[in-house]
Simulated assay, not measured.
Amino acid sequence: MINTVMIPRNFAIDEATELREKLIDMIENNKYDFLLDFSNCTFIDSTGLGVLVSVYKRINEHKGSLKLVKLNDNVMKVFKLTRLDKVFEIN
């Protein structure tokens, strides 16, 4: 079963910490397949990216999946600049 998680509008330090805790809790409860919906997200910083990378590593340890969807142009630009568009499956 795929678990859909909404990414906050401003995915920076406070929101990133909260989302990390939520995702890690889900992983610890044997949920390993995620669809992260960026339709509300207009900004992501390095903390947000760090959360995604650390969660991605944990999910991979369990042979799970992580897909990112509905990224706007500004957020997508950050993924391309950091080359994380080559790491994550983005639709």
Rank of each mutant, 00 (worst) to 15 (best):
I24D: 04
K86T: 15
N60K: 06
K67L: 12
N72G: 06
K63A: 08
H62I: 06
V5H: 04
N29E: 15
I24A: 03
K70E: 09
S65R: 14
R20Q: 11
R83S: 01
V78P: 10
G64N: 06
I2M: 15
K70D: 11
G64L: 11
K77M: 10
S46E: 02
Y56Q: 11
C41L: 04
V69S: 04
L81T: 10
L66G: 00
E21S: 13
I13R: 08
G50L: 08
E28G: 06
I44P: 15
S65Q: 12
M76C: 09
I2S: 15
A12F: 05
K67W: 04
D85Y: 04
I24Q: 06
L49M: 10
G64F: 07
M26I: 04
T4R: 03
I7Y: 06
F79N: 07
V53Q: 02
R83E: 00
N72R: 13
E61G: 12
N40Q: 09
L71H: 01
D73Q: 14
I2H: 09
L35W: 00
V69Y: 01
V51T: 11
I44N: 14
N3V: 07
M26Y: 08
K63L: 06
F43V: 06
V87P: 07
M6T: 15
P8Y: 00
D25F: 10
V78A: 11
T47L: 08
R9F: 01
M1N: 15
V5L: 03
T82K: 14
L52N: 14
M1Y: 10
D45L: 02
A12Y: 05
E21M: 09
K67M: 10
K63F: 07
S39C: 14
T17I: 13
T17E: 09
M6I: 15
V78R: 09
F79P: 08
E15I: 03
V78S: 07
M76F: 12
K77R: 15
N74Y: 03
C41M: 04
F43L: 05
T42Y: 12
R20H: 14
M1R: 11
I13M: 11
V87G: 05
L23P: 14
V5W: 00
D25S: 14
T42Q: 09
S65H: 12
L52V: 10
K63P: 05
K31I: 05
A16V: 03
L52H: 04
L49G: 07
G64S: 08
S46R: 13
S65I: 07
L52C: 11
F11D: 01
L19H: 10
N3T: 12
L36A: 01
L81M: 15
L84H: 05
K31Q: 12
K22S: 15
L68P: 03
C41Q: 00
L19D: 03
L68C: 10
V78T: 14
L66F: 02
K70L: 02
F43G: 00
L71N: 02
Y56W: 11
D45S: 01
L23Y: 06
